[in-house]
Amino acid sequence: MAEIPILTIDGPSGSGKGTVAARVAEVLGWHLLDSGALYRLTGYAAHKAGVDLADPAAVAPTARNLQVNFGDGKIFLDGEDVSLAIRTETAGNNASKVAAVPEVRAALLDWQRDYAKAAGLVADGRDMGTVVFPRAKAKIFLDASAEERARRRYKQLKDKGIDVNLSGLIAEIEERDHRDRNRSVAPLVPAEDALVIDSTDMNVDTVVERVLQAVHEVYPETRTA
């Protein structure tokens, strides 16, 4: 069986990895995995059901039994359009909490790996290169300062009509960074063989170009994409 080419893009909240991953996947004609959406969905579903997000025995079944449909750029949970609801900072923080539960990560692991299909996969997340696809040949760790990431999230959420406070966003991002980087299971760290890109002073087009260069270096056949 031919090897499925995989690009992993990991990084903290607001680093721009989702936007970059979508752009790169479109250029290459590859599938796209937004792994963060799965954790956001788990956190959202658990919170809505009144589940203790720190209780592995309660949260893990939620992750295993997600009734999710992706289509037309929208995400449906149990038939409800939650596309915007799971993108709030509260949903992001809940995602970070459930992501620290080993049983949740185990429940979602096979689901994520099943996304690796021809012609290729761009996997966006926090442990794509370290845990989910450790053998991927192309790995990126996309970072930026907490202040810059907060500004990006502020604009993104405002554009969606979501009311947010910039100083509050900075505090939430720093809190989430600390939790993600220091959790005992799959902490947020660059894979040893990942290319680290600091996008603080870079625009999206520049980052996309740099990522595509990295992909072309390990998958030369993509140069025609």
Rank of each mutant, 00 (worst) to 15 (best):
L38R: 08
L38T: 07
L38A: 03
Y39G: 00
Y39A: 00
Y39E: 00
R40N: 09
L41P: 01
T42V: 08
T42E: 07
G43M: 09
G43E: 03
Y44P: 04
Y44F: 10
Y44C: 00
A45W: 05
A45Q: 08
A45G: 02
A45Y: 06
A45V: 07
A46C: 10
H47S: 13
H47I: 12
H47R: 10
K48A: 10
K48Q: 11
A49C: 11
A49M: 13
A49V: 14
G50T: 10
G50S: 08
D52E: 14
L53H: 05
L53R: 04
A54C: 09
A54H: 14
D55Y: 12
P56E: 01
P56T: 02
A57N: 14
A57C: 09
A58L: 15
A58K: 14
V59K: 11
V59N: 05
A60F: 00
A60Q: 03
A60W: 04
A60Y: 03
A60E: 01
P61H: 14
P61C: 11
A63L: 12
A63W: 07
R64P: 09
R64T: 14
R64Y: 14
N65E: 13
N65Q: 13
N65K: 11
L66T: 04
L66Y: 02
L66F: 07
L66A: 05
Q67W: 04
Q67G: 04
N69M: 12
N69P: 13
F70V: 10
G71E: 09
D72S: 08
D72H: 09
D72Y: 05
D72T: 04
G73I: 06
G73A: 06
G73M: 03
G73K: 00
K74L: 13
K74W: 13
I75E: 03
I75W: 05
I75F: 09
I75M: 13
F76A: 08
F76T: 07
F76P: 00
F76Y: 14
F76E: 06
L77F: 03
D78V: 10
G79C: 04
G79K: 11
E80Y: 11
E80R: 14
D81E: 10
D81S: 11
D81H: 11
V82C: 01
V82P: 02
V82E: 04
V82T: 00
V82H: 01
V82Q: 01
L84T: 15
L84R: 15
L84S: 15
L84D: 15
A85C: 15
A85E: 15
A85G: 15
I86D: 01
I86M: 05
R87M: 15
T88C: 08
E89N: 07
E89I: 15
E89T: 12
T90L: 12
T90I: 13
T90M: 13
A91S: 11
G92R: 02
N93I: 11
N93V: 10
N93D: 09
A95V: 01
A95E: 02
A95T: 00
K97Y: 12
K97F: 12
V98K: 09
V98G: 03
A99Y: 08
A100E: 00
A100G: 06
A100H: 07
A100W: 00
A100V: 08
V101I: 14
V101P: 03
P102G: 00
P102M: 02
P102V: 01
E103M: 11
V104H: 00
R105W: 10
R105F: 06
R105D: 06
A107H: 06
A107V: 09
L108D: 02
L108H: 02
L108V: 06
L109G: 08
L109Y: 10
L109H: 13
L109W: 11
